[in-house]
């Protein structure tokens, strides 16, 4: 590395002998400002802002207006320690259920939604929703959402309801 030190020492001495300090500062300033104007290349992430602009965020999954809850009658499990498709700890998913369809406004597709109840703990009491799109009256029991679908479980106690996607409503799917 000695040659490296020698090289820069020599050059630095040459510059110091041939150029005034003010001149050196002016050149250095030109270099910095010029670079900034000509090459504005500081890296910054544009991806996030593009993604944000492209998708309209709808109501989140704790809101009754969340698209998957279009026929959900009961307490939403996302407010009870579960997720949109899984039961809270300490409860058991219902063995029987009913399946309806909801349209996802983000892509205009219809999805098959399984409205399983979560069973084995007392009523959650949070985020009660009552949406009834395409739900039918009691004489169509299989698509009636006032039914306690915990009826087939060891404990019939209703806690909350999930809305799991079980398929896409593609007419030829």
């Amino acid at each position: 590395m000695k040659w490296f030190d020698d090289f820069f020492e020599t050059k630095t001495r040459q510059v110091a002998q041939s150029m005034s300090r003010r001149n050196a500062l002016a050149r250095l300033g030109n270099l910095l400002v010029g670079t900034a104007l000509v090459l504005p290349v500081l890296p910054f992430d544009r991806v996030g802002s593009h993604a944000h602009a492209a998708t309209k965020k709808g109501p989140d999954d704790t809101s009754c207006d969340y698209w998957r809850y279009c026929a959900l009658d009961g307490f939403v499990c996302t407010c009870c320690g579960g997720t949109v498709s899984s039961c809270p700890p300490g409860t058991e998913v219902s063995k029987v259920t009913w399946v309806g369809t909801c349209r996802n406004p983000a892509n205009g597709k219809d999805y098959l939604i399984s409205y399983n109840d979560c069973c084995g703990a007392t009523m959650c009491g949070q985020c009660f929703c009552n949406k009834n799109e395409r739900e039918r009256p009691a004489y169509r029991m299989g698509v009636h959402n006032d039914i306690n679908w915990c009826m087939s479980n060891a404990s019939n106690t209703y806690h909350c309801t999930v809305a799991a996607i079980v398929g896409v409503g593609d007419p030829k799917g």
């Binding site: 259920t97 009913w98 399946v99 098959l112 395409r134 039918r136 169509r140 698509v143 593609d170």
Partner: peptide, 23 residues
């Protein structure tokens, strides 16, 4: 547990999920 009185167009597989798979 049949019965989804909505329009039931679609493949047999879809109809199975919608009308039978619940139970």
């Amino acid at each position: 547990p049949v019965v989804f009185a909505a329009q039931s167009v679609g493949s047999p597989r879809l109809n199975f999920v919608l009308h039978c798979a619940g139970c």
